[in-house]
Design a protein around this nucleic acid. Structure first.
Lengths: 163, 163
DNA sequence: CTAAACCCTGATCCGCGCTACAAGGTCAAG
DNA sequence: CTTGACCTTGTAGCGCGGATCAGGGTTTAG
């Protein structure tokens, strides 16, 4: 089976198969006399495994950790279960963040209906989003300001932020 | 007001201010005789606006579209409202995706409790994630893979490009 | 013989929002 | 004068999952 045939069998571009191979997600396949990759049926299973794991929200690095365990002869079940549970926690956290953002957007939408565009001054840029109650908060991105050697920034004017 | 003072006033690193300027989010400030940036109070408002808009989930490109309208002398209210409503739709869509992923993860977790690790064969990589009901679907990543219905060809016969 | 459709490797690019580094100029304190 | 904190510019890197290109080789059909 050539790479294009495998690609067609799983519905992905050939280059993605090569990409997975480079990333260590797929074993290096046999090669024909012309240097072409030659796959057997297990390659289809392998790609499908990768896509299923991706559909479960796992990153390629995490998926690689699974296949690496397999390659070492271990049964990755315990590790997979941990990954799944961790992902579940992550998904729920994100849903919470998005729910909060949804509320804020609903308030902004309501506010935009309440406010008169004629009152929107240049100094505000736009009064719908005007920063009257400015809170320094990450936009659902979960990003730390990072400990800097130069202190320059360690005063925040808003409230105390707790993530 | 020097850039470090502005940075401290809004609780961001100076570099971020310069970054916003490069991205066209902030107007180029006046310069002192030594070439130092010199800000007035409106710069504080401007940065706070940016952060508020970010907190509403807007991207920097979208925020720039707002300030560009302002620079052209227009009132961006209508555009802002559209952005907010679009973001609301997006957030809800993502929440739906995450809810579906949550269900799937719960099923996988349950399945992992049901299955005996001893049955996990090499051919499956791991039977918890074994791709029996393989569906080609984006891993709820919020990333649209571009409507490529072309299957698996390396070269694809140039489609219509926009942008 | 030529063109098209495959295949190969390696490198570079994308969006996102910064962050960090390099290599210098400026300014106030000691 | 020296030190150190500030300022300037430009450039490169991060993580993610590929996409795209450059520059070739191989195979098949006409």
């Amino acid at each position: 089976m050539l790479i294009g045939e495998l690609a067609e069998a799983v519905g992905l571009p050939s280059q993605t198969i090569r990409f997975y191979e480079r990333k260590g997600l797929m074993p290096a396949p046999a090669r024909g006399g012309n240097g072409y990759r030659s796959y057997d049926d297990s390659a289809v299973t392998c790609v499908k495994f990768i896509r299923t794991a991706q559909a479960a929200g796992l990153t390629l690095v995490q998926i690689r950790s699974i296949v690496d365990l397999r390659d070492q002869g271990a049964r990755p079940c315990t590790h997979v279960t941990e990954l799944i549970e961790g992902k579940l926690v992550e998904v729920r956290r994100r849903m919470g963040e998005l729910a909060a953002l949804e509320k804020e957007l609903e308030q902004l939408r309501e506010r935009s209906q309440r406010l008169d565009p004629a009152d929107c001054t240049d100094t505000d840029i736009c009064h719908i989003l005007a920063a009257r109650n400015y809170k320094r908060r990450t936009p659902t991105n979960g990003r730390m300001p990072a400990p800097r050697t130069t202190q320059a920034t360690d005063k925040h004017p808003g409230g105390p932020e707790d993530d």
